[in-house]
Simulated assay, not measured.
Amino acid sequence: MSMSASTELDEIRIIEQGVPPTRFARGWHCLGLARDYKDGKPHSVEAFGTKLVVFADSMGDIKILDAYCRHMGGDLSQGVIKGDAVACPFHDWRWDGNGKCADIPYARRVPPLARTRRWLAMEKDELIFVWHDPEGNPPAPDVTISEIRTPDAEWTEWEWKALEIDTNCREIIDNVVDMAHFYYVHYGMPTYFKNVFEGHVAIQEQRGESREDVVKWDDPEIPRLLGNRSVAAYHGPSFMTDDLVYIYDRYEVESMLINCHYPVGPDKFVLMYGISIKKTEQVPAEIAEQLMEAMIGYIGIGFEQDAEIWKNKTRIENPLLCEEDGPVYQLRRWYEQFCVDVADVTPEMVQRSEFELDTSRPVEAWKAEVAANLARQAGEEERV
């Protein structure tokens, strides 16, 4: 190899893919809507490299156990609920919500060591959460899920969707700071963008406008979407609440968007998203219900666009960034606190940090591109 070729190779940025972690993040993970688990049946959830059984006892309280029976390995999620216990389909050993074998119908007594792993469950605002900690510790008092929907208003029921994605779940976390992808992937135009990291919370504040060259409104009867305001916050490694206001030409729609996930394994996670709309004088119940159906479809398209990117991209530990790309490395440092022992959490991972991007240059470039696209589209229509 010549000296010039060697020098040129040295200057090429080489992607470092790294290895997806096999350890799953410490924190509260949402498993979905409470109503889906309160039907008197056990439910199977593959998460954290294992299988869980989720069921409600006679009082309607959610219980979560390891799915595999400690007797002979039967799958409890394929069994039935009997009283406050889930009964194994193999030999009818009955396990209560505390992880203790409560009864073996054919046995004189229950072995003293007949216990299985109980997972800490929490129900909040009609959602079910499970606590995961590789060290086996309970959550610290300040590690909580904050208020989801304000109690001083009436809201629609959750509209909820889920999809399984074959990649490591950190890919979705990077979106917290990725301002530019909203234009190229989701057809919005961020005009304001700020991140705040502190403790176990990561916040994304943004305002944006709709792209007229992509999103068309030809029917005057349909309200025209002008843009949005958003304050989204990850509470821990996997649960994001988004106070999202859609700005239409006739009214504003206040909503709560949930973006959450739980890992199935190192290279697979379940992504869930849901929306609830605040009922107001401008948006009464009947309009809120109609809007919710439309909005969950629109939001779903956005998540599917992300999933298509994740499916085809490579993992990259050393992304090459420009000034307008946001604090990617700082975000990953914040996220690292959930992937190490509590004793190894450093002050840099949890200290307060604020980053406000200057969006003037991107917006100028994007508006010019939108204008050019609209002119091209108008020319094509005239030729037709």
Score class of each variant (00 low, 15 high):
130 V>P: 04
71 H>Y: 12
25 A>T: 09
168 N>P: 13
126 E>N: 14
144 T>D: 14
128 I>C: 15
211 R>E: 05
252 E>R: 00
19 V>K: 13
158 W>Y: 15
135 E>G: 09
24 F>W: 09
7 T>H: 07
221 E>H: 13
218 D>F: 14
144 T>I: 13
183 Y>R: 09
136 G>M: 12
251 Y>I: 03
115 R>M: 10
351 Q>P: 05
134 P>S: 11
126 E>V: 01
178 D>W: 10
200 H>T: 02
207 R>K: 10
67 A>R: 03
83 G>M: 13
269 F>M: 00
144 T>N: 15
84 D>N: 15
182 F>G: 00
218 D>N: 15
3 M>V: 04
39 D>S: 06
8 E>M: 06
188 G>H: 03
5 A>K: 04
52 L>W: 03
330 Q>W: 02
374 L>T: 01
163 L>F: 14
6 S>E: 08
231 V>C: 13
3 M>F: 06
307 A>L: 08
78 Q>E: 14
126 E>R: 08
225 L>V: 08
3 M>D: 07
286 E>C: 08
283 V>W: 01
257 L>K: 00
266 P>W: 01
238 S>R: 06
366 W>Q: 02
197 F>G: 00
144 T>C: 11
176 V>M: 15
27 G>W: 02
353 S>C: 09
57 D>M: 04
179 M>I: 08
360 S>W: 06
227 G>A: 08
138 P>Y: 12
355 F>C: 11
168 N>L: 12
223 P>W: 04
44 S>Q: 10
51 K>S: 14
180 A>L: 14
342 V>I: 04
77 S>A: 15
44 S>D: 11
91 H>T: 09
365 A>W: 02
124 K>R: 13
48 F>Q: 04
170 R>Y: 15
365 A>L: 13
33 L>W: 02
119 W>F: 14
364 E>D: 09
252 E>P: 02
383 R>T: 07
151 P>R: 11
361 R>T: 05
78 Q>M: 13
109 R>E: 14
90 F>V: 11
309 I>G: 01
368 A>H: 08
195 N>H: 04
187 Y>R: 06
233 A>M: 15
24 F>H: 12
183 Y>M: 08
232 A>E: 11
344 D>F: 07
361 R>E: 10
254 E>W: 01
209 E>G: 02
237 P>Q: 12
29 H>M: 11
189 M>G: 01
324 E>A: 11
187 Y>K: 09
56 A>R: 00
204 Q>V: 03
254 E>N: 04
68 Y>R: 07
14 I>G: 05
210 S>R: 01
90 F>E: 08
213 D>T: 03
158 W>D: 12
133 D>G: 12
177 V>I: 14
284 P>Q: 06
284 P>G: 06
309 I>R: 03
218 D>P: 02
